[in-house]
Amino acid sequence: MAKGDKPDKPERGTRIPEQGSSPEPSDLEIRRRNLQEKLARYNSAKKPDHEEGESGPPKGMAQAIRLSSEFLAGVVVGVILGLGIDQLAGTSPWGLIIFLFLGFSAGVLNILRSVGAVAPSQIGKNGASRQDEGPNKPE
């Protein structure tokens, strides 16, 4: 029984079928139609994760691949930048180590932004703002 619903009790004056007797066919038809309507409303309100006929991986798998690729991209970019700095400056292995850690932290930050645990970056949203511009601009 759903929360808040009254228990199914027959109204006064209605005939309750006796044990062993079968209900009327019209009663069964009405109940079947009511059940079909309720199921149709329930199914239309419920959104499936994976549509029939839709090709491709399910939603969870797609998100896992996206998150892992964002993390790997940050680490790979950090390694490439670190190796480049080491080649130019001759500071092997320090550039690699520093930029590997920076790439790792950038990858983790990308994952947290994708999941929604951290607010997206506001850099460049409205352009750079200067203190001498805007509504309080001195004249």
Rank of each mutant, 00 (worst) to 15 (best):
I30Q: 13
K46T: 13
G124T: 11
K47Y: 01
V115G: 08
G60L: 02
D27R: 09
D8P: 08
V115A: 12
G78P: 00
S55D: 05
F104G: 13
L96W: 11
G4K: 09
E24F: 01
G82D: 00
L28E: 11
P57K: 03
K3Y: 02
A62P: 00
N34Y: 12
I65C: 00
K47H: 10
K6Q: 07
G84I: 02
P7R: 03
I16P: 07
E29H: 09
G74M: 01
L88Q: 10
P23W: 04
E37A: 15
G127D: 09
N43L: 15
R130W: 10
P93T: 05
A128I: 15
G82A: 02
G56I: 01
K47I: 12
F101K: 07
G107D: 07
N126E: 14
I30P: 11
P10Q: 08
I16T: 13
H50E: 00
A40I: 12
V118I: 14
G74I: 01
S105Y: 15
S22A: 14
S55G: 11
L72Y: 03
P17Q: 04
P10K: 07
H50L: 03
P7K: 05
L88A: 13
L102I: 15
G103S: 07
S92I: 07
L39E: 15
G74K: 04
P23S: 06
R32F: 09
G116M: 00
R113S: 15
I98D: 06
E52Y: 13
R113C: 13
P135S: 06
P120F: 01
N34A: 14
I97R: 08
G84Q: 01
G82T: 00
M61C: 10
D49P: 12
E139M: 10
P58F: 04
L112F: 10
A128C: 10
P138W: 05
